[in-house]
Design a protein around this nucleic acid. Structure first.
Length: 588
RNA sequence: GGGGCUGUAGCUCAGCCGGAUAGAGCGACGGUUUCCUAAACCGUAGGUCGUGGGUUCGAGUCCCGCCAGCCCCGCCA
């Protein structure tokens, strides 16, 4: 629809400006409903260069538009408003036809990219082995999954990579410590449970920070591990397996698919990374470490600390691993992923790290023509007191506990409602609804705010039944399902043209037809909250329609047209929520 | 000290390439149910968009300064 308008507009615009200069019509969606569907603001900008009144310029453009048959078939006569805005309104029959088309289209009007599109890497979640997943992993996991779903729906081959922390100094610490306090954990699977492992890790970290002998032993252990010592490798493998199973429980619960490719995967490439950088003349030795110094936008040396790719003790660090990952992901198969876009979903605190690493990768020539390298930062999860979310005891909140509580609260809420309404439902229903609503609430609350700002976590707000929340959206789907159950099952076979008369119907039509634009925007901007905002508005518009316009009791042909609108609304909500990783319900 | 992010209604947040009268939700106050799930809908009140300049026909949005909060800053990730 926008494309068609874009085709129609420049022709007229060019004609109008034959005597002048190139023209940007500044075509945009209307800022308010009473201005129609689109508005063109270009006339205002031209007033000065053309030395004409803006309304006069607008009138000239409108005259050209009206002479264009293709335009006239699409839009009602344009209106000039205010200081010189041109307001465009699509013809009702054009809108109705587009609704019909989408009803028959499983993609709901969203185009798919070419079948041979190159892979996109989405790097997200990335917990550390030997630690439990905590609230800090929540946002990366949920946002990363939603972005991956949107990109997959668009047809991109997406590599969902879990860059788990399974390598490096931390393992030296942990193995060294375990060797002393719980050697059985290094020899047999599941000798200690993960909770204990977490405690051991904490102890190891404390010793590492305070005990120089322990520090040295840990470093030595890392060297042995990186050198392929079989005993160390065996211990490492056991620890990884154990953590992996715990992570998988969370992922299964959240319905998140993820391929593990931890830091250790890049181990064989680290040496080559440093060699590449040396060959490119980027490497400088400083205080015994191999560094790449950064430059500012102007090409002058940057005051930012250098990226260290080889420590003074000869070991590699995370920057080296991240560089190896970039190199591998852009490199053509089979020695790489052949990707053209890398997306990193990590907290905003790592922004400067990624800025540095990305710059080094570019200067090393690893980023192909047209390759995109994007850090998708997000803010902290805060408690309702505005500080970093902690348990009452002051510990970090385990992800498992957080999900449990959301589901428990959803269940309590549901049972209270069932009692109030005197409804009888079996236990399977209660479990199903509580699980779906609770997890949906957690995901949606996170996704619905602009990710860059800190996010204030509140069970009460996310589970609220009104407002921009998962339960509100799920309820809209349930209402439509109710209509379908009571006689709307034939809504699929509309043969004649759709007929709409009520303003609430047109509002719903217009909202429904925005879906494709929103998806393309999320694909580009990587902001899932845009999709949430759209779905919330769609639910609101639908609820107004539902409240004020009868469907099943309407006379034909209105009844069939309204049923069709309901179906397209349900399809859009289900698809949209699905792209956020949220399943829907028929009843709740 | 350097860098990044944030600052919009009492609270939580939107605000798209700079467009017309600043947008929701919650909370407050008032109203709506012979009707498809009222978990809904309608209305009222509530704003110096942190602040001072600048650019522009037009600035919450772009540029510069300042203030406040949070985060990051060489061999952890």
């Amino acid at each position: 629809m926008e494309a068609a308008l874009n085709r129609a507009f420049p022709e007229a615009a060019d004609a109008a400006v034959q005597a002048g200069r190139p023209l940007d019509p500044q075509l945009a969606p209307a800022s308010r409903p009473e201005f129609g569907d689109f508005q063109a603001n270009g006339a205002l900008a031209l007033a000065k260069p053309l030395r004409q009144a803006p309304r006069q310029i607008a009138a000239a453009i409108v005259a050209e538009l009206e002479a264009d048959a293709a335009f006239a078939a699409l839009c009602l006569p344009p209106e000039i408003a205010g200081p010189g805005f041109i307001n465009l309104t699509l013809r009702p029959e054009v809108l109705a036809e587009e609704v019909s088309r989408r009803l028959a289209d499983p993609r709901l009007g969203v185009p798919a990219v070419a079948a041979d599109a190159p892979p996109v890497v989405v790097d997200f979640s990335s917990p550390n082995i030997a630690k439990e997943m905590h609230v800090g992993h929540l946002r990366s996991t949920i946002i990363g999954d939603a972005l991956a779903r949107v990109l997959e729906f668009r047809g991109h081959p997406v590599r969902r990579l879990n860059h788990v922390g399974d390598w490096g100094t931390q393992f030296g610490m942990l193995i060294t410590h375990l060797r002393e306090v719980a050697p059985e954990a290094l020899r047999a699977a599941d000798a200690v449970d993960l909770g204990d492992l977490v405690a051991f890790y904490r102890q190891a970290k404390a010793r590492f920070d305070s005990d120089e002998a322990f520090q040295a032993a840990s470093r030595e252990e890392v060297v042995k591990l990186q050198g392929g010592d079989p005993v160390s490798l065996k211990a490492w493998g056991l620890l990884c397996d154990q953590s992996r199973r715990e992570f998988q429980r969370i992922y299964d619960r959240l319905d998140i698919r993820l391929a593990e490719r931890g830091e250790s995967f890049y181990n064989p490439f680290l040496e080559a990374v440093v060699e590449d950088l040396a060959a490119a003349g980027l490497l400088v030795e400083d205080q015994g470490a191999q560094c790449v110094f950064l430059v500012g936008e102007d090409g002058q040396p940057s005051p930012a600390p250098p990226v260290i790719v080889r420590k003074s003790d000869g070991g590699f660090n995370y920057a080296t691993t991240d560089l190896a990952a970039i190199r591998y992901r852009f490199a053509p198969a089979p020695q790489g992923d052949g990707a053209r876009r890398l997306i990193y979903v990590t907290d905003a605190g790592q922004a400067s790290h990624f800025a540095g690493v990305f710059q080094v990768a570019r200067r090393a020539g690893w980023v192909p023509e047209g390759g995109r390298l994007e850090h998708v930062p997000f803010g902290l999860v805060q408690g309702e007191d505005g500080r970093k979310l902690k348990t009452r005891a002051g510990d970090t909140v385990r992800l498992k506990d957080l999900l449990d509580e959301a589901v428990e609260r959803a269940e309590a809420d549901l049972r209270r409602r069932l009692a109030e309404e005197g409804r009888q439902e079996d236990e399977a229903f209660v479990t199903q609804v509580a699980t779906t609503v609770g997890l949906a609430a957690v995901k949606y609350a996170d996704l619905s705010t602009n990710r860059i700002t800190n996010y204030q976590f509140s069970f009460d707000r996310m589970l609220a039944l009104q407002g921009n929340t998962a339960p509100y959206l799920l309820y809209a789907v349930v209402r439509i399902a109710g209509i379908a159950r009571r006689g709307g099952a034939d809504a699929g076979d509309i043969t004649g043209p759709l007929v709409f008369t009520e303003p609430q119907e047109w509002a719903l039509v217009r909202q429904l037809l925005q879906f494709d634009r929103v998806i393309l925007e999320v694909e580009e901007e990587l902001l899932p909250n845009r999709l949430c905002g759209y779905l919330f508005e769609l639910s609101q518009v639908f609820n107004r329609f539902y409240d004020q316009v009868p469907v099943l009791k309407a006379e034909e042909p209105a009844r069939a047209s309204r049923l069709a609108l309901c179906r397209l609304t349900a399809d859009t909500l289900k698809l949209g929520l699905g792209l956020l990783g949220i399943p829907t319900l028929e009843r709740m």
